[in-house]
Amino acid sequence: MKRGLVIDLDTCVGCHACAVACKEWNGDSALSGPLADYEPYGAAPSGVWFNRVRHYETGVYPENKTVNVPMSCMHCEEADCVTVCPTGASYKREDGIVLVNQEQCMGCNLCTWACPYGARELDTASGTVKKCTLCADRIDDTLLPPQDRQPACVLACPAHARHFGDFDDPQSQVSQLVAERGGVTMLPELGYQPVNRYLPPRNAPKVSVMTTPDSASLMHKVSGWINKMIER
């Protein structure tokens, strides 16, 4: 099994609902304990997040567009964060999920350096490193109705931009989406073989924009210039 997420960059609206749902579910989860907030009501609030959403602009005007990019652990197949860990606190499960045993981590931070994606964060309150668990305590909980056995972020997404499933199964929704839409991985050159895939934004039809004609007549330019001078 190779469990992970597909994130659709075409439909993500950048609302941060996934990040908030993640913080809410995992803050209460026994897997990583509360996720610390530093100075939540102070001048510079900060804290531990498993999922962060960033916003980018691609292309050049008028061909530009906003792309919202949520990022969390990619549950890499070649996870160096696991191999560098000296204590054995970091491990990869049979189903591909990469976890940190909170009872064993000594907070040396090396795994956070080994992760290219910034998916691990040191919680200074607990002195341990924490990361996305893919809601391991939800997805296997048989007490939940089957449609709820999914990561909190996937359930919360109002744009249905997030999908959870098994990438080893070619029939799964995630595999099909990747095949259909040409799903890509981030920084594949580094060889971590991240499992999570991103569906690239579709190319929108070209927008027509009003341009000032280059061929504005000399007369036009001169009168414009005179008008400006007079205003001053």
Binding site: H16, A19, A44, P45, S46, V48, W49, R52, V53, R54, H55, Y56, E57, T58, G59, V60, T66, V67, V69, N109, T112, W113, G118, E121, L122, V184, T185, M186, L187, P188, E189, Y198, P200, P201
Partner: peptide, 29 residues
């Protein structure tokens, strides 16, 4: 471009990192 998997984008600019203040990631890296 490599980092976001958008290899064909001619230009990519960060608009907003999604947090108002420093984070573990900005402190460390």
């Amino acid at each position: 471009q490599d980092a976001l998997g958008l290899k064909s984008a001619a230009q990519i600019k960060l608009l907003d990192a999604g947090h108002t203040h420093r984070t573990f990631l900005t402190d460390e890296f």
